[in-house]
């Protein structure tokens, strides 16, 4: 089936087999290999991208269902030769070791910082909670890091959230 979608601001019209995931479309067809395949079951978050501005798992999204979607991958975060503030903060705070989970962590954090409302650890449901370390940890729980770089990932995100 033919679909048209926009990836990092560039329109693409592609013919896809209905079985192909958005992740495989990005990596294998559009040669955007920043998004990573970790578990391919929605459990690790390495494939996280933004779909219409919201963080989502590209491994569980069928490409064929993305007609008209605007996708942002890690390759689309930096602009005009400037790193995205989260990318700069990850470097500044040494928020990675092997780096395999980092593109997903970055896209997830960008999406997370744009989200409003409570999380599972928020005491008061009706206000806008401050993004404490506990809030960041809960909100980022869909992104695993097998190197265990979590403390510095939290520090880097907190630095941008302030």
């Amino acid at each position: 089936m033919e679909i048209t979608l926009e990836v990092n601001g560039v329109p693409h019209t592609v013919v896809v087999d209905p079985r192909i995931s958005l992740l495989d479309l990005l990596r294998e067809r559009l040669e955007l290999t920043g998004s990573k395949k970790g578990c391919d079951h929605g459990q690790c978050g390495a494939c996280t991208v933004l779909i219409d501005g919201r963080r989502a798992l590209s491994c569980l999204a069928l490409a064929v269902a993305q007609e008209g979607s605007e996708i942002t991958t890690v390759e689309g975060l930096a602009g005009d030769g400037q790193l995205h503030p989260l990318q700069a903060a990850f470097l500044e705070h040494d928020a990675l070791q092997c780096g395999y989970c980092t593109p997903g962590q970055l896209c997830s954090a960008v999406g997370m910082l744009a989200e409003r409302g409570p999380s599972a650890v928020t005491e008061e449901l009706t206000g806008e909670p401050e993004l404490t370390a506990a809030e960041i940890r809960e909100r980022m729980s869909g992104n695993l890091c097998r190197c265990g770089a979590y403390p510095n990932i939290v520090t880097a995100i907190a630095a941008v959230a302030r």
Partner: peptide, 19 residues
């Protein structure tokens, strides 16, 4: 329906809840 909000927030991850 705070119990409902709490139940949904207790499930899955931010990415999964968005989808």
């Amino acid at each position: 329906y705070p119990m409902l909000a709490r139940a949904v927030l207790a499930g899955a991850s931010g990415q999964v809840r968005n989808m």
